[in-house]
Each structure stands twice: as C-alpha cells, then as structure tokens.
Design a protein around this nucleic acid. Structure first.
Lengths: 254, 254
DNA sequence: GCTTGACCCTTACGTTACGTCATGCCCCAC
DNA sequence: GTGGGGCATGACGTAACGTAAGGGTCAAGC
C-alpha cells in the first residue's frame, strides 16, 4: 500500500494528475486510510499505465474512460477503431501544420528578398492560404493509378522536405550546367555520376513507380500549356533547362 | 460604417470573435453608435486580416497584440523572429505527432497479427515510446556531412512515409526474387528496369548525396555487427538478401 | 402607438488537462 | 507539544472562443 506521492513517482506522473483522475472517476484510488489518505497497490500501476499510453496517443480522457470501463461492448468504439480514428485525426492535424509551415517558409522568402514592408508579407501568406485550397490541375497528366500513388505520397509531404528537395535540384542543375560548360561527355564517369544523382532525385518523387514516372514525363512535355495563373512561380523558376534533360537522357542511354 | 454582423461576414469570422478581440483590446471597435452598437469601417478590414493571418500561423493572440501594437520596437520580438520561433514550435509539434503515429502504426500491426490480447498492445506501444528516445547507433557509419544530411532528412520523416517505403521495398524484393527464379539476366531490359527502380528507392534515402550513399553501404556491409538489442525487428526482417544486392550491382555495371 | 422580428449589448459558464495556490488536518520525530 | 512534511479539498487560471441568458434597439407593419 503506497501513499499518493510514492505511487506518483513510480508512475512518473504528478500528484495532481492522480487527484484529477480520481475526481473524474478515470482512475479512482481503491482504498483510503482511516484519515482519508488515498492508498494504491502496485498492481494498480498496470491500469494506470494503460491510461497513460492512451493519453500519450492524444486520446481525450473521456474516451479513455469509456474504453477502459466499457470493455468493448457492442457498438461502442473498440480500441482498434479508436486507434484508427486517432490516426486520421493526427494526420489531418499534421497536414494543417505542414500547410502553415509552407506558408511561413514562403513568407520568410518574401521577407528576406529585399526586406519588403510587412503588409506585403501578410498578403503573400494570404495568397498562399488561398492557393493551398485549389490546386489539382496536374491531375490530368497522370493515370488513375499514378494519381492514387501521388495522393498517398502528398499526404506525407512536408514543407521542409520540399525545401530540401528544391535545394537538391538547384545544386544538381548547377553541377550539370558546370559539366556542360566544361564539355564533359554524358558517357564519361562524371556524366554517369550526375545522371545517377539526377535519377535518385527523380526517384524521390516517383518512388520507382513507372506510372508516376510516365505521368511526370507527360507533365513536363506539356509544360508549354500549363495554366500560367495557377503555377507557383517558384515551380516555374525551378524547371530544368531542356539541355539538362538531354544530357541526362544521353547519359542513361549510354 | 458597418454593424458587427456585416463586418464579421466580410472578414469571415463570427460575431463572438469580434467581441472577444474587442475585449482583449486586440481589435477594438473604433466607433460606437449612440445606443452602443459597435461600428466598423471597411478600412479596418486590413488590420483584422493581419491578425487573422497571424492566428492562422498559430501565434497566440497575446503575441499578436504585442506584435501589432509595438511596431517592432527595440529588443521586442520582431515579426521575423516570431515566424522563426513559430517554425520550430510547429516542427517539434509535428515530430511529436509523427512519433505518436509511428507508435499507433506499430500497435495496429500487433493488433492485426493474431488478435492478441489488448494488454500486450499497450506494452508494444510503451516499448515503442522507449525506443524512440534512444536510437542513434547508426551514427558511426556516416561521415559528419552525411550525418547532418540525414538528420535534416529525418526531421522530415513521417511514419506513413516509412510505411510506404517499406511496402515499396517489399514489392521490389518480390520482383527481384521472381526475376532470379526465372533466370532473368541483370543485363536484360527487365533487369535494367528493376535496377532503375531499386536505385530510385535508394535515392529516396540518399537524396543523391554520395556521402550518405557511402555511409549506407558501410552500414550494410557491417550488418553482422549490429547491436542485436537495438535494431528494430522490422528492420532486421526487411533487409535485402545478398543475392538481390548482387543482382542490382551486376545490372548497374553492365 | 404597439407589436414583432432581427439585431445588438453585456455577463457568464463550459471546454481540456491539469498547475498552482490556499486552507486545514494527519503523522512522526525531537 | 511542536515543527515540518505529507495529504485532502476547494478554487482559480489557462486559450480561444461557443453558447446561452437576460435585456435594450431599430425599422417595419398593423
């Protein structure tokens, strides 16, 4: 029989938390000393840990209580269902964070470029917010299978990832440009290495899915017809020059 | 001069929100009608939109008030600083979500496998939580530059991405196995295509960075010496067989 | 002039998961 | 018996509003 502070230390929670759970009925102390002290047994730790695990997953205490007291009666939210729901909740929350991070990154870009006045920055964020709500014009270039793969992939897309990928591409553009300037042959070892790096970056998007690769090629081939008003400027500016494509193609057909 | 509801509709917020911001002093109505009605002008919309943009970024109202009333006095948190701080806050929040999603995914795995009792599931999550706190034994295989690149990359790693990559790898293992079974030559078109897909997946991790690729090769070469207790079982099970590696190597050296 | 409905005001409680006092009892050692 | 630490209950605070509750205002229709 432990008193509350000792038990709290064992479970790595505060005394207040135990008080709270007691009042909620989520984890009531099973015994009391004659003077009213809460008393816990070591076995109670297991139950508390179950609660803490679910809390770690971000499940509200009310639901935890329902889950643990109603041991999966009919049409009650079973543990598996709860986990699945929580997964989608967290995924959506993360997507929201990602959108915000994208917006902030763009704003910082604007801010750095030439220390523009602040009010312009707010507009850039607003624009970003609006753009995030209506963009799927690329859909028509992809097969249904590829579209699904891309959607799955986009779910997992994070803005810093975007930033790094952009940086990687700009680096390799610079390197290919340098190779072209120096007259490096695509068939040379350096040309081969460049092509390998290139394909590795492409692979980061296609994930080895040939359907996605096909759609990407179509998308690029039709770039003259992109809707000018919907293409983000940074995408326009980060397109590879045709001679880079030619170089890589030559290297791979060696 | 607009009354509160009309103004609220224009700004796409609730009347209650305007009440709230008024009481906080964040966005007080500049005028009142004789009978006490709040009156807004169209020009006020710009200021409110600034507030809403910052709110969208997740900045607390108190900070917003400080930012907008103190127009960047000395040693006050400037807008740029605020954005940067918010970025790290959101990134950490996202990392937390990712850890939870990983834990849930693992738990679901356990749950599906053979409908194990629930209590075992809690333990699996607990194990996962603990494991997430101490893993960097792979560090010694990578050069400092590669380590930094990987760290940057891991920041952006999400559990569903992990799941998809795992699936992709298992698919290509199966395909290579099939090719080996059928005696397909590495130099054949099919062998080449497989090698391309393989390298695309590797590229998803190396991002075309040769230093990371080098470290990865070292890591794989030394797999006999991995600390058995720290390697996650799913990683052990998802290692490619040596003959797969040989096949791909042969295909690329064609 | 009066009612009616739409709109406005202020006040105040509910939400989440506790942290942080404040007040007062219990227990053990000196 | 007294001092100090542990415990209990009660209550307020947190963030950003949602949601009544109770009560004026305004313009239109009778």
């Amino acid at each position: 029989m432990l008193r509350i502070q000792q038990f709290a230390k064992l479970a790595n929670v505060t005394v207040r938390t135990l008080h709270h759970y007691d009042r909620l009925g989520l984890f009531p102390a099973q015994h009391r000393s004659p003077s009213g002290y809460r008393l816990y047994r070591l076995e109670d730790l297991a139950q508390l840990e179950r609660i803490l695990v679910l809390r770690y997953l971000g499940i509200p205490l009310k639901e935890i209580a329902a889950l643990l007291t109603h041991p999966s009666s009919a049409h009650q939210p079973s543990l598996a269902e709860t986990l699945d729901r929580q997964t989608t909740v967290l995924q959506e929350r993360r997507n929201g964070i990602n959108r915000v991070l994208t917006a902030i990154a763009n704003a910082r870009q604007h801010l750095n470029q030439q220390h523009q006045p602040d009010w312009e920055l707010y507009q850039s964020i607003l624009k970003e917010i609006n753009m995030q709500e209506n963009q799927d014009w690329t859909a028509k270039y992809y097969s249904p299978e590829a579209k699904e793969a891309i959607e799955q992939h986009q779910q997992q897309w994070s803005p810093d990832m975007q930033a790094r990928v952009t940086a990687d591409w700009q680096q390799i553009y610079a390197d290919v440009q340098s190779a072209l300037d120096r007259g490096v042959e695509p068939t040379s070892p350096e040309g081969q290495a460049l092509a390998d790096r290139w394909m590795a970056l492409v692979g980061g998007f296609t994930r080895g899915n040939p359907q996605v690769l096909d759609g990407l090629n179509k998308l690029y081939a039709d770039r003259a017809n992109w809707p000018a008003d919907k293409v983000k400027p940074e995408i326009q500016q980060n397109m590879p020059k045709p001679e880079y494509m030619a170089f890589v193609r030559a290297a791979r057909q060696k």
